[in-house]
Design a protein around this nucleic acid. Sequence first.
DNA 1: ATAGGCACCTGGTGGC
DNA 2: TGCCACCAGGTGCCTA
Length: 282
Amino acid sequence: MPELPEVETVTRALTPVLKGALIQGVSLNRPNLRFPFPVDFKAHLEGTTVLDVRRRAKYICIDLSSDMTLLWHLGMSGRVIIDPLTGEKEPPSHHDHVHFTLQNPSGKTQQHIRYRDPRRFGFMDLVPTLGFQRSKFIQHLGLEPLTDDFNEAYLTQVLKTKSAPIKNVIMDAKIVVGVGNIYASESLFRAGTHPATPAKLIKNHDLLIQCIKDVLEAAILSGGSTLRDHVRPDGNLGYFQHHFFVYGKDGDLCEKCKKAPIKKMTQAGRSTFYCPRCQKAP
DNA sequence: ATAGGCACCTGGTGGC
DNA sequence: TGCCACCAGGTGCCTA
């Protein structure tokens, strides 16, 4: 269920486990996920050391001692399971597609990581670390929302020619990455902006910027606050759902105005949730 | 250039 | 209980 905050949370959980570790073994239970695994994927990874773990958009990027970077996307249903060193492991599932065995740099300790993805919309790819930006999955990506570059001046410039609904535009990864279907609805609710507003008619760019950053940061904090749970046998990640104002709340009374029920509509084939009273129609 | 629709998959849910 | 339609957090690619 990964949008940017979930991928950030997983990346942070993986970093201390992976960084400096030797990849001892890789086992694949099938030849492909959304795409085929790269040729010699297993052979390439085994024996390399992890130099760094980063996130770009919704990709986990694992830099290897072979000067290659493992690009790892969790799709819609991907989950990373970090098995605890001691205690009860999460039972295996036939949706566990990749299994990494790692050797800790400081000793002989082994650690296991599994990738579970029922829908198999996720994928892994290997790209040269130096040519990372030229990867077909990376090259077209827009700004990271939590950087200073994603600011009022940028959004004003980008939106002024766009007539598409603002919700679709903030979900467009060429413009800004990491804003998925949930956080698009939540950001627009916080900004008091109707999701169908043509992007060029948006007035308060600074408020929208701030709402996107706030909702993503709050979700990361929420994920982070339950990060320690991630390595528990139950493996549950803390999501942000307890803080949703509109997502999945159609029919409920709006928590802000307490007068109108939350409505649901479809935009570009995806569900949008909004309060018709707090988010004024264009 | 841009917007819309389809495709890739499985599993859960709600209606009949 | 069983079956079926529909929906789900992403995103590359094709078409108009």
